[in-house]
């Protein structure tokens, strides 16, 4: 069935919650954000929380350790900062510290990403920052089937998974935070990301498995989230100039699918496109993976180099765009 990105996630959760009574959801405003699940599974399993992220994210770790499967919601990933201890020092450490005898099956669901003029306290991606902590998986779906499939896998996982839902793909987030019902504001929403076909029940998508969206021999784009769609756009423009591009959608930031990255790099020209911060993040990690494997080809990256500004025109310049990707590609192609 054809569904929106957000509905795909909801279908996956609905299916999983019906099968497994241990799944509960808590977070701010979940009684309305997840009103359909609330109406079906009731106030015992969908639990609204006060604005106390450090307490309820910390609690989620304990809940998971003691036998339930929480989906804990941090509205915008930026807000995880106030609760970072739960992630950095608790959730990620239990398995190792217990000698592998105790694990934390928690799913942390957050919206992320920019493109609607809300500035750098509400539009960050932070998958790089979170991925830098060993012991956590971070998934970033770019279309409805992946959104559903990765949610199912996250709910089946034994260890903590941060599930990031890009706001340009999730219509309700974009409507709340960007449009507010207005028809006179425009957003660059990738069609094939915002809606698509899913199966019911949805099919699992393995965590840590990238997907080739396009095969090509001249240049490779490696990306994640909304930027994947920008890469696809750029590759169409390049095709008109007879350059064929390979586009790899990582889908999972960590663990990285190194095998697919290496396979994709065979064109000898790699462009990593990352909406997250350029420094100390995913793009540098991919460069390291390539370099350690003996890759000797060309490499460049497009990413966000500073704080995301508020004004739409400044924001457009800060986030990866089809134009900036195209420019980077032309440079590396030497044309």
């Amino acid at each position: 069935m054809r569904v929106s990105f957000a509905t795909a996630i909801e279908k996956a959760i609905e299916h999983a919650m019906a099968e497994d009574e241990r799944i509960i959801i808590f977070g701010e405003d979940v009684h309305l954000l997840r009103n359909n699940l609330y109406a079906r599974f009731g106030p015992e399993r969908i639990i609204p929380a006060p604005i106390s992220e450090s307490a309820f994210l910390g609690a989620a770790v304990g809940v998971a350790m003691a036998g339930l499967k929480p989906i804990v919601e941090i509205m915008l990933v930026d807000f995880i900062a106030v609760a970072f201890d739960a992630l950095l020092n608790q959730a990620s450490k239990v398995k190792a510290f217990s000698g592998g005898k105790w694990n934390v099956p928690v799913v942390i669901r957050c919206s992320c990403g920019g493109g609607y003029g809300d500035a750098g306290q509400h539009e960050q991606c932070l998958w790089g920052l979170i991925s830098s902590v060993p012991g956590i998986s971070v998934v970033v779906p770019s279309n409805p089937p992946d959104a559903a499939g990765l949610m199912l896998s996250a709910l089946n996982a034994e260890d903590p998974v941060v599930y990031l839902e890009h706001k340009l793909l999730s219509e309700y987030w974009l409507d709340y935070l960007g449009a507010g019902g207005r028809k006179n504001v425009a957003f660059d929403i990738p069609e094939s990301g915002a809606s698509g076909e899913i199966e019911i029940p949805p099919k699992n998508v393995a965590i840590g498995k990238a997907s080739f969206l396009r095969e090509g021999s001249d240049i490779t784009f490696i990306s994640i989230g909304v930027s994947v769609h920008r890469c696809l756009e750029a590759s169409k423009a390049l095709e008109r100039e007879d350059a064929s591009s390979c586009v790899l959608d990582l889908r999972t930031a960590t663990p990285l699918d190194k095998e697919s990255i290496l396979e994709a790099s065979r064109t000898g020209r790699v462009v990593v496109v990352d909406e997250d911060y350029l420094s100390f993040g995913l793009s540098g990690e991919i460069a390291a993976v390539l370099s350690e494997s003996g890759y000797r080809g060309a490499f460049t990256r497009v990413g966000n180099t500073g704080v995301i500004p508020y004004a739409r025109h400044l924001e457009d310049r800060a986030l990866p765009s089809v134009d900036s990707i195209y420019e980077a590609a032309k440079k590396i192609l030497g044309t």
Partner: peptide, 12 residues
């Protein structure tokens, strides 16, 4: 969102 704004359009 003007660059002539209080925070040069950066803060909002």
């Amino acid at each position: 969102g003007s660059e002539k704004g209080l925070c040069s359009g950066w803060g909002g």
